[in-house]
């Protein structure tokens, strides 16, 4: 007796009841410019989902940085401004001050936010602009080819710290997120990741809260996402995620740092 096994078609799998993750309709069809394994695309999709679920597309303006995510405006289907390197918080301030009831967010890498733009970051958080900052910390300058970032860990190899970051001459990695949490103008500060489904869900909750907080007009909501840069780190995506868990999360522990204006713990 022969058993006939009907081979399963992809179409049979793509069904509503099987849907765990999907591409948000607010993601455009443009081909992502990110390397396979990179976290930027996942965070983009989360932002698109949150905007879609809150129904705020017509009231949301994004500010894209200089860095790998300079082209974020190609991927999330909303109005955008593309800012100069590090200046996204100032651009967001200009937008928010003339449109106080719109949802304004910046999307920035660590070089953008914590090196060239530190002044703007600190002051937007100190003034307490009612905006959302999404901060992707991959510990490296991704776009320019893997140079040392302000967040690069001690001993970590990059193209401009080829023998590892020597903190005695190159300075220490900066925990900008803990720093801004100390400022009176931040209302919500959290650090998340997107390398596993559970983390993706947590990050989505955090980003949703960060957008909803804008209605309260109580200051900056700041979401750091610790992410990998497998190209810059010269690792496979799987190895990069493992290395991130074992090294990045030790120095940059995940979790809420400030909630509803109160420091956690």
């Amino acid at each position: 007796m022969s058993i006939h096994v009907k081979s399963m078609d992809v179409k049979d799998i793509i069904k509503e009841e099987n849907l765990v993750y999907r591409k948000s309709p607010l993601m455009t069809d443009n081909v992502l410019s990110y390397c396979p394994g990179c976290g930027h695309g996942t965070v983009h999709n989360i932002i698109a989902e949150v905007i879609e679920e809150l129904g705020i597309q017509s009231n949301t303006i994004g500010v894209a940085p200089v860095g790998c995510s300079v082209l974020a405006y190609e991927f999330i289907h909303i109005d955008w401004l593309q800012a100069a390197h590090g200046r996204a918080p100032a651009v967001a301030t200009g937008l928010k001050r003339v449109m106080p009831d719109k949802y304004i967010f910046t999307y920035q890498g660590d070089g953008d936010l914590a090196a060239i733009g530190t002044n703007e970051t600190i002051h937007v958080c100190n003034r307490g602009e009612h905006i959302t900052i999404i901060f992707i910390n991959n510990g490296i300058y991704g776009m320019t080819g893997g140079q040392m970032a302000p967040t690069t860990l001690e001993g970590m190899v990059s193209s401009t710290s080829p023998y590892g970051r020597d903190v005695s001459t190159m300075g220490n990695p900066i925990k900008i997120t803990e720093l801004v949490a100390q400022l009176p103008g931040t209302y919500y500060v959290t650090r998340q990741a997107v390398h596993k489904p559970g983390n993706v869900r947590k990050t989505k909750k955090a980003i949703r809260k960060a957008f909803e907080n804008q209605e309260l007009k109580k200051g900056v909501s700041f979401v750091e996402v610790v992410s990998n840069c497998n190209s810059g780190w010269k690792m496979t995506p799987v190895k990069a995620n493992k290395w991130m868990e074992e090294n990045m999360f030790v120095f940059y522990p995940l979790g809420d740092i400030k909630v509803d204006g109160e420091l956690v713990k």
Binding site: I61, V63, L81, A83, A84, R87, A90, V91, A92, T93, G94, L95, K96, R97, V98, M99, N119, E120, H123
Partner: peptide, 26 residues
């Protein structure tokens, strides 16, 4: 009209960029 003292000229001109991007007279 909104008036804001920025933290630097770098910030000020980029605030201008933001508000001008919204079509405002800045």
């Amino acid at each position: 009209m909104v008036v804001l003292q920025a933290e630097s000229e770098l910030a000020a001109i980029n605030m201008v960029f933001g508000a001008a991007g919204a079509g405002r007279r800045v």
